[in-house]
Nucleic acid binder design. Structure first.
Length: 421
RNA sequence: AUACUCAGCACGGCGAAAA
């Protein structure tokens, strides 16, 4: 069993969960030496791929095998995490309730919940859960604190983050490189680059060494703040510290240069990235499309799209949204609609931003009725329009002089529980 | 190294900032 599980975990880690499941089934026919770990391993693979349906099936399959060995907390944790990552908040809670009936939630369970809540913008609840843990005598660990800190930072609550950080210290919880990176990234995203740089120096003094992730956040923040020279010098420090840039670092740099018309540098970095042995990812390609479109070089951008498909790195919803946006902004709205349909035909599910983008393009071109059609389609597809989507339409209606309809939509928005900003 | 939880990159409206 042990050996089998090791083998299966290797497959899962390589993203080959389908094969792993196949192997498990074959093994199952031979004897019964499969255990919770086997099932949990494979479920992990499916949840990472977003195939939650199958993960749940596997848990049921396991449950049906032996009534004396019900699913354990770890198995439930995998599902909880999967539901959160898929944004299926309600489902996560349903399973959490099922879970508490049959087994005791572990520290990891709480950490999973806190991370999920933080990422869904429900930091309040995450904080509440943290208090609850402490009151009920369950000791939060550094991961618990890091998750809460991340939620606070993403909510721009740097002061509160400082508080929580201090409390962690008081409780004897040692900050680690993730803790510092989380804080540094929060500062970078708020363009507080001097503080971010200060913290970067401070962490080393406290015996915690920045890694590639830490440096990349700082580089990203500096580039976005237009401090290109500082970004390059941090990159140098990073290399001196023995941290090699990874694919994300390169994407960050390429994007930063493209946005500052540094096409030359961007191309040089792309070459360097390839030489370092990194394959361009969807993000790399999308970034390049972005750079080409903003330079008005649509033809080349489209070539990249075709190239991607040929390289087995298919464009995703983000890639398509960007192209749709660029076409709209160039006044080529009809072609943009064509690309939107192409996305759907390629079995890529448009996300909220994709819909908002096409709706905006149509509104600005005065094609409000078609924009409404897309709103309709989006709701049909189970995508919830957000504040931005509504703002676009309300704006469009007002510009078209249909102020009453705009007001009506505004009220409809409030009814759906969407808070105006 | 038998399974579960934490940080960095690309995409949308308005506004703000910068120019």
């Amino acid at each position: 069993t042990y050996t089998w599980n090791v083998l299966l975990s290797v497959f899962v880690r390589a993203g080959r969960h389908g094969e792993a499941r196949q192997m498990m089934n074959e093994q199952m026919l031979q004897d019964c030496s499969l255990d919770v770990v086997t099932f949990t391993t494979i479920m992990t693979g499916y949840t990472r791929a977003g195939e939650l349906r199958t993960a749940v099936e596997l848990m049921e399959e396991y449950r049906a095998r032996d009534a004396a060995k019900p699913p354990n907390a770890q198995m439930y944790n995998v599902l909880l995490n999967g539901f959160f990552n898929a944004g299926l908040f309600g489902q996560a809670l349903v399973y959490f309730e099922k879970m508490v009936k049959v087994c005791r939630p572990t520290l990891v369970t709480y950490n999973t919940l806190i991370t999920g809540l933080s990422k869904s913008g429900m930091v309040r609840d995450a904080l509440g859960l943290l208090e609850y843990m402490i009151e009920s005598g369950l000791s939060p660990d550094v991961i618990t604190f890091n998750s809460v800190l991340d939620g606070l930072c993403k909510d721009h609550r740097v002061l509160d983050a400082h508080h929580v950080f201090k409390r962690a210290l008081e409780r004897g919880c040692q900050p680690n490189v993730v803790t510092y990176s989380t804080l540094i990234d929060g500062l970078s995203k708020m363009a507080k680059m001097d503080e971010a740089l200060q913290l970067l120096s401070m962490m080393s003094e406290h015996g915690c060494h920045p890694n590639t992730v830490t440096y990349s956040s700082v580089v990203d923040g500096l580039l976005k703040a237009g401090r290109t020279d500082d970004a390059i010098s941090v990159l140098g420090r990073m290399k001196d510290a023995g941290c090699l840039p990874d694919a994300v670092t390169y994407n960050t740099l390429i994007d930063g240069f493209l946005k500052r018309q540094g096409l030359r540098e961007a191309v040089g970095l792309l070459r360097e990235m390839l030489e370092a042995g990194f394959r361009p990812s969807v993000v790399t390609y999308t970034t390049l499309c972005h750079g080409l479109c903003r330079a008005g070089r649509f033809q080349e951008a489209f070539e990249i799209l075709d190239h991607m498909a040929a390289r087995g790195c298919s464009p995703n919803a983000v890639t398509y949204s960007y192209v749709v946006d660029a076409l709209c902004k160039a006044g080529r709205v009809t072609e943009a609609v064509g690309y939107f349909e192409k996305m759907v035909e390629s079995k890529v599910t448009p996300h909220v931003i994709a819909y908002s983008t096409i709706i905006d393009g149509l509104c600005k071109a005065g094609r409000i009725d078609e924009a409404y059609d897309f709103l309709e389609r989006m709701i049909q597809a189970g995508r919830i329009p957000d504040v931005v989507t509504y703002s676009i339409l309300v704006n469009g209606l007002c510009d078209a002089g249909r102020i009453d309809t705009g007001l009506e939509l505004f009220r409809a928005m409030e009814e759906t529980g969407c808070v105006p900003d």
